[in-house]
Each structure stands twice: as structure tokens, then as C-alpha cells.
Design a protein around this nucleic acid. Structure first.
Length: 332
RNA sequence: GGAGAGGUACCCAAGCGGCCAAAGGGGGCAGACUGUAAAUCUGUUGGUUAUACCUUCGAAGGUUCGAAUCCUUCUCUCUCCA
């Protein structure tokens, strides 16, 4: 667990940008599940580019099939960072992502290559770009305490308490949103300050030129690709994978086990309705709903450029043009 | 062939004379997103010239001031017995 005293990750933007930072571009590829990111990445030359995974589940070891991780071969074709960097029982947060991604970006740039941050976790991408507020990071102990209080007194009580200590968050956070109510109370508990008193940064944390490519695909086509992918998971041995994880002590409460493709096993086992067919069906549904949320979140990224995933040439062309302009403006 | 249960909006399902364009859930669509985000949460969901009107609860007819709700016939589905 990180303590709140630790310096904030990636706060190196207050200095004036150096010329070298301005010539070190960062690419971001965002796309919903199954849009075709992996296929697109295979078109990029490993001598010039490396990939940084921006997917909250693929950071975990042993979660390969359910998270639709790039295969061994795909990972060998081009360097991948931030894959398999945590054990399944460990926590991983946006803050961790920023720290790790910063390190990877630095490493890739030092090799004279260009980092491609690629993934579907919009929350990570957003905070990689803009950074986090200075609110304290989560503390397991405090979180458990708040959870216990909510269990005892009810959610309505928690929300009205939030209203007292932080009226702005109280108004902003819906009374049913247990997750956010808990976090806001947790911040108050730890810092004595309202969550809403911590400003969210609105400018980029770094001066490097960034190209944000958002990938989409015709709706029905994306849906059928999702179906296909889930069916494949069954064939590839998703059941074996989850069995190993459970034998290794995996519990539903682990962050990694909240991932689609894993949580469904726990849910259905608990309700006594388990069958592989049911699990796969539910995974498929949850994935579909997830792609919807991903797209919605990413639509709020006003500086993203949208491309159809069926046209990799267009993306490649745009990337080359972007790199060209970075290189030429550096010479001025 | 006999007995019974039932057909409700995209799906499941409640309603069983007026407060019903019809609960609830799912899905669809739209949205939010301040350190677990593949998480969590919200709105909306018959049509329109929209505080009103039109069409809708298997079909047709009937009773009633008034029907998804009662009656008759038809039709389809399911279960059990032959």
C-alpha cells in the first residue's frame, strides 16, 4: 500500500519544457474491447515503437485468456510494457499506472523509440494525460473502516454524512453510488479535507507532443467480434485458467477478479446457477455493456482523433504525419 | 382423445373492472466518471402536430358509463393422463 506521504507520481511539468521533451512524442491508441487494437499494433515496426499496456486487467499475471492479453508471439513481435507486472492478489490503481507508465515512457524514449500507450481503460488514459488530484490515495485500513460503517448504518446515512463533511461532493455524488460515497468519506477520514477541495488538474502533465487515436468500428461488427472473442475464450481454456487461479487462492474480492471474464464465475457459483454456457453468456453481455461505457467515456476526450479500426492505413498515415511534424518543428 | 396451466410492450414477468401506455427485471439507447475504473452510478425505452390524442395486453365478438382485467367462440403454447 502506498502512503499518502509519498510524492505524487509524475509531477514533472512545472519546469519549462526542454527541447528534448518536445521531440519525444507519445502515441495513445484507445479502443473498446475487441475493436482490433492488437491487429493494428502488429503493423508497427518494433525497431521504432514499443507498446505500453493501458488495460487494468492485463497488468495481472496469470489472467491471460479472460483478459484477452496479447499472445506470447504478439508480445515478442513488439515490446510490451505493463503486462504481467502484478500478482493476481495485488492491488493496482490509476496512480500505479501513471508511475509505471511514466517509467516505461522514459525507458522507451531512452532507447530512441516511440511509446504507444494502447488499451481500453479510459480512466487510466485520462489521468495519464492530466494527472491526479492531490487527494490521498486509498488506504486499505481506512477503506475497510468506512465499509464497515456503511454496512452498519446504511448507505443513506453515509450519504448524509458526506453531505455534512463535503456538501459539494454530497451534491455531486448520487445517493446510490456506494463506491464514490465511500471514497469521498475515505478521503475526508484520511486528510480531514473534503474530496471536492482537491482540484482536478485540467492541463497536461507533460510537454511532450501527444497524438490520441480513438478506434471505433461499426456497431454490429464490434458486437459480433465480441461474441467471437468470448466463444474463443471458452475454447482456449478459460475454465482451466480460473480453476488454477482459484486453486492459487483467488477470491472474488480481489481487484483482478472483478475483471469481466473472471467475476462471472464467482457470481454464478454463488447463485448456484453455474454452467459454462451461462458463464460465457454473461461474460459476453458484460463485455458488450463495457464496450458501451468505454466508448461513452472516450467521447469526452475532445482532443482524440477517431479512426475506423478497419482502416489501419489511415491510422498509420496519421501517425507518420504526426511524427513528421514533431520532427520538423523540433528543427526550427 | 381426456384434464389442467397459460398467451401482456424488444425479452422475462406483475397486474385480474376505473388511479394502466400498463409494476419490476433484463436488454437497447443516452449519460456521468477527483487514486479498486473490465469498477460504480444515472436517465430513458409504443406513436405523434405531444399537460392532449392515437394504437397496444393471442384473434374475433359480447357484457359494462368504463375491460389487459368479466363472458362466448376461435387460435397457439406448455404440463400431466391416455
Amino acid at each position: 500500500m502506498k502512503s499518502s506521504a509519498e510524492p505524487l507520481p509524475g509531477r514533472f511539468s512545472s519546469k519549462r519544457p526542454t527541447n528534448s521533451e518536445l521531440t519525444k512524442p507519445i502515441l495513445i491508441f484507445f479502443g473498446p474491447t475487441a475493436v482490433g487494437k492488437t491487429a493494428l499494433l502488429s503493423r508497427f515496426d518494433s525497431s521504432r515503437f514499443s507498446v505500453i499496456n493501458a488495460d487494468s486487467i492485463q497488468v495481472y499475471k496469470s489472467l491471460d485468456i479472460g483478459s484477452a492479453k496479447a499472445t506470447k508471439e504478439e508480445q515478442e513481435a513488439i515490446d510490451h510494457y505493463l503486462i504481467d507486472i502484478r500478482e493476481p492478489h495485488e492491488a493496482f490503481s490509476v496512480g500505479d499506472f501513471i508511475t509505471e507508465a511514466d517509467r516505461a515512457v522514459k525507458q522507451i524514449h531512452s532507447e530512441g523509440k516511440i511509446p504507444i500507450i494502447s488499451g481500453g481503460t479510459a480512466f487510466y488514459v485520462k489521468h495519464f494525460l492530466y494527472g491526479l488530484s492531490e487527494a490521498p490515495s486509498s488506504d486499505e485500513r481506512v477503506r475497510a473502516l468506512i465499509a464497515k460503517q456503511i454496512e452498519e448504518h446504511g448507505l443513506a446515512w453515509a450519504h448524509s454524512r458526506l453531505h455534512e463533511v463535503d456538501p459539494i461532493s454530497g451534491a455531486r455524488i448520487h445517493p446510490n453510488d456506494a463506491y464514490r460515497i465511500a471514497r469521498a468519506l475515505e478521503v475526508f477520514e484520511q486528510s480531514g479535507r473534503a474530496l471536492s477541495s482537491f482540484d482536478l488538474p485540467t492541463t497536461r502533465r507533460f510537454p511532450n507532443p501527444v497524438l490520441i487515436i480513438a478506434l471505433e468500428r461499426e456497431h454490429s461488427e464490434l458486437q459480433s467480434r465480441v461474441s467471437e472473442r468470448i466463444a474463443q475464450m471458452g475454447e482456449l481454456g478459460l475454465v482451466e485458467e480460473i480453476r488454477h487461479l482459484i486453486q492459487g487462492g483467488a477470491e472474488a474480492s480481489w481487484a483482478s477478479m472483478a475483471g469481466i471474464g473472471y467475476r462471472e464465475f464467482f457470481e454464478l457459483a454463488e447463485s448456484g446457477e453455474y454452467s459454462l454456457q451461462r458463464v460465457l453468456k454473461r461474460i459476453e453481455r458484460n463485455t458488450r455493456l463495457y464496450t458501451k461505457r468505454q466508448l461513452t467515456f472516450f467521447r469526452s476526450f475532445t482532443d482524440a482523433e477517431w479512426f475506423d479500426a478497419t482502416d489501419p492505413e489511415a491510422v498509420i498515415g496519421r501517425v507518420e504525419a504526426f511524427l513528421q511534424s514533431v520532427a520538423s518543428s523540433a528543427h526550427q
